[in-house]
Computed example of a mutant assay.
Amino acid sequence: MRTVSVLLRHELRLLVSLWLWITRRAQRADGERAFGYGRGQGAMMAGLVFVCVIETLTMSVLLRDWPTVHGIVLALDVYTVVFVVGMHAAFAVRPHLLAADALRVRRGVHVDLHIPLEQVASVRRELRMTHERTDGELNLPVGSQTTVTLQLSEPVIHFTALGRQREVGTVRFHADDADTLVAAIKQARTVPSTSPAPPE
Rank of each mutant, 00 (worst) to 15 (best):
V69D: 03
V85W: 05
Q41D: 14
V81R: 01
A75D: 01
M44R: 13
L76N: 06
F35G: 08
V53N: 10
W66M: 11
L74K: 05
H70V: 00
Q41P: 09
G71Q: 03
V81P: 03
L74D: 07
G38E: 00
F83T: 00
A34K: 02
V51H: 12
V85L: 13
V82A: 00
G36V: 04
H70F: 03
R28N: 14
G38R: 01
A29I: 09
P67E: 03
T56D: 05
D30W: 12
G36L: 05
V85G: 02
E55Q: 05
L62H: 08
V85K: 03
L62E: 05
A26L: 12
T56G: 05
T56H: 07
A34H: 04
D77A: 14
T68D: 04
R64M: 14
A46Q: 07
G38I: 02
G47S: 12
S60V: 00
D65Q: 10
Y37T: 11
G38C: 06
R39C: 07
G47V: 12
L62F: 11
L62Y: 04
V51G: 14
G31Q: 06
V84R: 03
A46W: 05
A43C: 10
V49W: 07
G40V: 12
L62A: 13
T80K: 08
A29V: 11
M45Y: 11
D65C: 05
C52D: 06
D65H: 13
D77F: 07
V51E: 15
V61Y: 00
E32T: 04
R39A: 14
V78T: 10
Y79D: 05
R64S: 09
Q41E: 15
T80E: 00
V82L: 02
L63I: 11
V49Q: 07
V69P: 01
V61Q: 08
A75S: 04
F35C: 07
A26R: 06
L48Y: 08
G40K: 04
E32S: 06
V49I: 15
L76H: 11
V84L: 06
P67H: 01
W66F: 13
I54P: 05
P67S: 01
V51W: 11
D65A: 06
T68E: 05
F35H: 11
L62S: 08
D65L: 07
R64T: 13
Y37H: 13
A29Q: 10
G36F: 01
V84W: 02
T80F: 03
Q41H: 12
I54L: 15
V51T: 15
A29Y: 02
F35N: 09
D30Y: 12
A43L: 12
F35L: 10
V73S: 06
S60W: 04
C52E: 14
G42M: 10
M59Y: 00
V81C: 02
F35I: 06
V69S: 06
L74F: 12
G31H: 08
A43T: 09
